[in-house]
Amino acid sequence: MPSLHDFATWQPLLRLLHAAHAETLTAPGGHVAGQISTGAWSVPLPFRPPRPGRASQVSDNQEQFDAVGRIVEALEEDGSDRVSFVMEASSAPDDVRLHLIGPGPSAEPGVATAHPGTLLLVDGALPEPVRRLPDPVPGAVPAPSASLALVFGLPRLRTLSTCPGTFADPREIARLTHLEYLELPPAEWRVLLDAGAVPTGLLAAGIEAHRQRDNPLETTDLANEILTLYGRPPITGITVLEGAACTGN
């Protein structure tokens, strides 16, 4: 049976990824990332279209299905339900460095991405309050569309999720003292952490990272800073494997 932490188990998939993303991997900071679970996967590989007049079949992309199937089999053998990975170029020509990221006790897995999902900052907190209806409040009405001024006019706001560049000065978020869930891009989190301005009453948090542009290893480091700030256990289950992307090398 294939082992999840054996480079040979991953080699067929790494060969396909290396061929598809050779230019990306040779660029400074270049990486390729994805997630594989026992029921689905998100791997940045192109699918070959079927021949004209014929429906798509597994055999059209058999190499990819076989390569991912080895990882799924290893997950089942390991008793795990999913694994996230980041592939980078190694110092040796055609070699790659593979980072396998396991789940953390205070971090939900990302959805179809190698980036960490919701960070649980308090015992018993449920993932992503943004997806749950708030408790009924007499006189509550739908809020207008959010903007930096409108947001700060809602001092009892409990959930805030923003895109890059929403705030001229992210440090103003500290004024929202009733926030329970905060989701920000990495750059905005960096500003808050460096300024010591992360709201103290959060129950959960999220990092709005770009699936491929942002490196999940850096996002994981950022997540660990947030978890540590709240006295939560960090994400530590990272295994590093290294070897040739192609068996012929």
Results as ranks from 00 to 15, higher is better:
Ala174Val: 04
Ser147Trp: 00
Asp169Gln: 11
Trp189Met: 01
Asp169Ile: 02
Asp94Cys: 02
Asp81His: 10
Thr166His: 13
Gly124Ser: 03
Pro186Ile: 00
Thr177Glu: 15
Pro138Ser: 11
Ala168Asp: 15
Tyr181Trp: 13
Arg132Ser: 13
Ala89His: 02
Gly153Ile: 01
Pro105His: 09
Pro164Met: 08
His178Lys: 10
Pro109Leu: 05
Pro142Asn: 04
Leu120Glu: 07
Pro129Gln: 15
Ser161Glu: 13
Pro109Trp: 05
Leu119Met: 09
Gly153Trp: 02
Thr177Ile: 11
Pro136Leu: 02
His115Val: 00
Leu154Cys: 11
Leu121Thr: 00
Arg175Phe: 09
Ser145Pro: 05
Ala92Asn: 06
Arg156Gly: 10
Arg171Gly: 11
Gly104Pro: 03
Pro138Met: 06
Arg132Leu: 08
Val130Leu: 14
Pro116Arg: 09
Thr113Lys: 05
Ala114Lys: 00
Val141Pro: 04
Asp123Arg: 04
Ser161Asn: 09
Val151Met: 06
Ala92Phe: 13
Asp95Pro: 01
Asp81Ser: 12
Val191Arg: 15
Leu154Asp: 14
Ser145Arg: 07
Ala143Leu: 12
Pro185Lys: 11
Ala107Phe: 12
Arg171Tyr: 03
Gly139Asp: 10
Thr118Ser: 08
Pro136Gln: 05
Pro186Asp: 11
Pro103Gln: 06
Pro138Gly: 09
Leu120Tyr: 01
Leu193Gln: 08
Val191Trp: 12
Asp81Phe: 14
Ala195Val: 00
Ala146Met: 05
Phe85Pro: 03
Arg158Glu: 14
Ala89Glu: 09
Ala168Met: 08
Val191Gln: 15
Ala168Trp: 05
Pro129Glu: 15
Gly124Val: 00
Asp194Lys: 10
Ser106Leu: 02
Ser80Asp: 10
Phe85Val: 01
Phe167Gln: 09
Arg156Thr: 15
Pro144Ala: 09
Leu119Ala: 05
Glu183Ser: 13
Leu182Asn: 04
Phe85Tyr: 14
Val141Ala: 15
Leu75Cys: 04
Gly110Ile: 00
Cys163Asn: 15
Asp95Asn: 06
Arg190Cys: 05
Pro144Lys: 07
Leu192Lys: 07
Pro155Phe: 06
Val191Asn: 14
Leu193Trp: 02
Glu183Asp: 12
Ala149Asp: 13
Val130Trp: 08
Arg131Pro: 05
His99Glu: 06
Arg158Thr: 09
Pro155Lys: 04
Leu157Met: 08
Arg156Lys: 12
Leu176Asp: 11
Pro164Val: 03
Thr166Met: 11
Leu150Ala: 13
Phe152Lys: 12
Val151His: 03
Ala146Pro: 07
Thr166Val: 07
Arg156Val: 12
Thr177Ser: 14
His178Trp: 12
Ala92Ile: 03
Val137Gln: 13
Ser91Trp: 13
Arg175Asp: 15
Thr162Met: 08
Arg82Ile: 02
Thr159Gly: 06
Asp81Lys: 05
Thr159Met: 10
Ala197Tyr: 09
Gly117Asp: 12
Leu160Lys: 00
Leu182Ile: 02
Ala89Asp: 10
Asp194Pro: 00
Ala187Tyr: 13
Gly79Glu: 04
Pro109Cys: 07
Pro185Gln: 13
Ala125Glu: 09
Leu148Met: 10
Pro170Asn: 09
Val130Met: 14
Ser145His: 04
Ser145Leu: 07
Ala114Trp: 01
Val137Trp: 06
